[in-house]
Design a protein around this nucleic acid. Structure first.
Length: 297
DNA sequence: TGAAAGTGCCAACTTAGTTG
DNA sequence: CAACTAAGTTGGCACTTTCA
């Protein structure tokens, strides 16, 4: 069964005849196995784009079609030339995390993921280099500031725009491992022993890729919390955007829980409550105190 | 006709380079 | 060495396409 037949069943079950699957991904269901075949372009694309967002599609399809799908294989071609090595590197980290998190998910390519454990030791994460622009005009920036202003009383600290760029040993353009720049955690907050991470989306931006983004941010912060990935030495002097408070909390092992929140008026029609439940149904995540939830704006 | 995927453009953001 | 400018990239937005 391929994309057209799968879409057909999804439409029946979800009672939504507008549901679609991205044509840049080949889905294939047979004998209880869903194969998600990603293109060269997809594995090098922004993680929130449909062609790249395998986490979201895997979780949505498995949650909607539990009788048809027991196992999910993420497949791509590791031998061809990759047009964007930074996105590709992040893609491989995402795959590595995904197959660790869910025992029903497997790497369906010939790429050997074992080396990642060693690699992580050399990674460092960048941190704010100035205050966030308080005047930024984008709708999302305005939503972000409003939410932070409204929620100040509910958290010990709440702030915006936390960088999550991965680098080798030092933070510089030459040593970057994954995309840096604009991919930042929209909003983060601390309350007692819990770090909250919010992925904010405007109501007209409803994409399955929101799952990929939030999972990536949560996994990176969890790897920092567990000291698998470090901040560089000069991070301890940074006081922008309340980073010093976060840094000290992480450093003194005060953070025991990480909660990722989808913060939006509405989600993609395939992201049902059952998808959030499946997202949380993981031994590793329970062991590592990771949890996801949907907060309706 | 309406909803969702796909596409191309541009504002905004980070870093690197330059200047006083 | 701070402040400014330039360059390059990301991701949002608005538009187009597709399909029931």
């Amino acid at each position: 069964m391929k994309n057209p037949e799968i879409v057909c069943i999804l439409r029946q079950i979800s009672q939504n005849t507008n549901v679609k699957l991205p044509e840049s991904i080949d889905f294939e269901v047979s004998d209880g196995i869903l194969r998600i075949n990603l293109s060269d372009k997809g594995v090098c694309a922004n993680m929130q784009s449909n062609e790249s967002a395998f986490e979201g599609w895997a979780l949505c399809l498995k949650a909607w079609l539990p009788d048809l799908i027991e196992k999910v294989l993420i497949c791509w071609n590791p031998t061809t030339h990759k047009s964007n090595l930074l996105h590709y590197e992040r893609f491989k980290y995402r795959i590595w995390k995904f197959i660790q998190t869910y025992d029903w998910a497997e790497n369906g390519s010939l790429f050997n993921m074992d080396y990642y454990g060693e690699n992580l030791k050399n990674w460092v994460i960048n941190f704010p280099c100035d205050e966030a622009d308080k005047e930024a005009q984008g709708d999302e920036a305005i939503l972000e500031r409003d939410y932070i202003a409204n929620q100040k009383g509910n958290y010990d600290i709440i702030d915006q725009q936390l960088p999550v760029g991965v680098f080798n040993n030092v933070v510089s353009k030459a040593s970057c491992v994954m995309p840096r720049g604009k991919s930042q955690i929209d909003i983060w907050a601390l309350r007692c022993d819990t770090l909250h991470i919010f992925e904010l989306k405007k109501s007209n931006n409803i994409m399955v890729g929101i799952i990929s983004e939030l999972m990536y941010y949560v996994n990176i912060m969890n790897d920092i919390k567990n000291q698998r990935i470090k901040y560089p030495p000069n991070a301890k002097e940074c006081e922008y955007r309340n980073f010093d408070i976060l840094y000290n909390s992480l450093n003194s092992n005060k953070i025991h829980f990480i909660k990722g929140h989808f913060l939006a008026e509405r989600l993609h029609p395939l992201i049902s409550p059952a998808v959030i439940t499946l997202l949380n149904d993981s031994h590793i995540q329970k062991m590592e105190n990771i949890e996801y939830s949907y907060i309706v704006l």
